[in-house]
Design a binder for these strands. Sequence first.
DNA 1: AAGTGGTCTAGACCACCTT
DNA 2: AGGTGGTCTAGACCACTTG
Lengths: 233, 233
Amino acid sequence: MKGQTRLSWTDVRDEIRTRILHRTYAPGDKLPRDEDIAAELGCARTTVHRAMQDLSQIGLVERIRKGGTHVRTDPVTRATFDIPITRREVEQRGSKYDYQLISHALEDTPLSVMARFGIQQPARVLHVKALHLADNRPYMFEDRWIHTGSTPDILDVDLNMQSANEWLVRHKPYSRVDVRFYAMNAEGESAVYLSTSPGSALLVIERTTWIGQDPITSVQAVAAPGYQLTALN
Amino acid sequence: MKGQTRLSWTDVRDEIRTRILHRTYAPGDKLPRDEDIAAELGCARTTVHRAMQDLSQIGLVERIRKGGTHVRTDPVTRATFDIPITRREVEQRGSKYDYQLISHALEDTPLSVMARFGIQQPARVLHVKALHLADNRPYMFEDRWIHTGSTPDILDVDLNMQSANEWLVRHKPYSRVDVRFYAMNAEGESAVYLSTSPGSALLVIERTTWIGQDPITSVQAVAAPGYQLTALN
DNA sequence: AAGTGGTCTAGACCACCTT
DNA sequence: AGGTGGTCTAGACCACTTG
C-alpha cells in the first residue's frame, strides 16, 4: 500500500492554482463552494479556507460571502517590497556603511510637507538632511522632516552619531505609513551629495508615518543612480 | 450587564500591536506563548495564532518554532503594490484610455533580455513597442519581448486592436513574476513617444513572467513624467 | 430569505528548532 | 529531548451579500 498522507493546505492551494492555470477554472468562473472542494479532495472545509485565503491574498481569486469564489478576470500583479533601515540594506549587500549628517534645523513645515502630513496648520519640525554611503560611495540622500510635537525626543539625539532613520525606526513605532515611488532629476543638493551630474534620473522613495492621527516624520529618500527596487519572491 | 462578546482575532491582533507600540513588549522581547496569551485574553489558541499570522506577515513580529515569538528589532517597512492592466489603471483614474501600436517584429533576444529571462541561448521573440494614452496624452510607453516558444499564439493576435499587455494578462497565466522599479532618463523613443524632453526622469516598471521554467514575456513599462506608484493602504 | 464565506472552539498531532 | 508554533478536524454559529 502507498503512504497516503493527509492533505495540507498548501497541497490544496497548489491544486486549485494548477486548475486555474490549466483553465479548468477559467477567468471569471465561479469555483465550487469550499465545502464541495473539501469533499472532493477529502479534507476539512477549514483547510480549503486556508488555501483560499492565500490565493485571495495573492490576487488570483476573489471571495465574496454568499457570492462565492471567482477567478479574477483581470489579475493584478501584486508586488511586495521590504524597505529596511538603510544601514542594514547596505550591510546586507556586503558593503561598508557610513553616514554623514549634512544639516539639521528647526523650521516650520512648508506647504508640501503639510500636504504629506495631512495637516492644515504649519507645525514645528526638525529638518534633517543626511547622506548614507556604501563602500565610501554615496548611496542615498535623505531629506527628512520630523514633527517635534509628536516626537520631541528627537531634539536630544546627536544626529552626528546616529541617523534619524535609525533612531526613529528603533524608538518610534508607527501605526500608519504611506509609501510612494517616483523618479526625479538630480538637481542642486541631490546631485552634489550623490556625486552625479544634474539631470540624472534618480529613484525616490517617499515615506510618511503617523502614530494614530499624529504625524511623525516624512522623508524623501533619493537613491544614487542605478538603484533598483526588487520585489520579494 | 454589558454585552460581553467573544474576542475576534482582529481584537487580539490589535491588543498585541498596542502592547508593542506601548513597549509592553519592546523590540527584541520574547512574547508569551500563544497558549498563555490565549488564556490571558480568554480565547482559543487558534485565535491567537490567526492574529500572530497577521502580525508576522506585516513584519512586526518574527515567529520561530520552539524559539517563540519575538518583536522584530529592525522593523522593515513593508509595502504592497498592485500593478493592474494599464487600461484599467487609466480608466480607474476616470480618464479616457487609448492605445497605439508603434512597432512589432520578430527578433532574437538581445543579451539584456536573455539575462532577464535567465536563459543561455538566444530565443525567438516578438518585440513589441506600444504607447498607452490617458485623455489623449501619453501615459506609458511599453517595450516588450514575448517568447514565441512558450507563447506562439501571440503571432495570431492583431496587436493594433488589443495591447499585448491585455492579451497576455487575459490569456497567459504565469506562475512566477519578477518585478523591479528604477529611474531612467528619457532618451530617443521614450522621449518622443512620451512627449517629453530627453533627460526627463522617468519611472520604469520592469516585469518578467514565467510559466514553470519557461519565460513568457519581459516588459519595460516607462511611465510619463510625474507618475507615482502608491502603496496599498 | 437563504446561501456562502468567515470565524471560533477544543482537541489532537505534527514539524521544526533550540537547548 | 522537549518546547513551541503550525496544521488538521468537526462542528457550530456568525455576517455579509446576493437573488
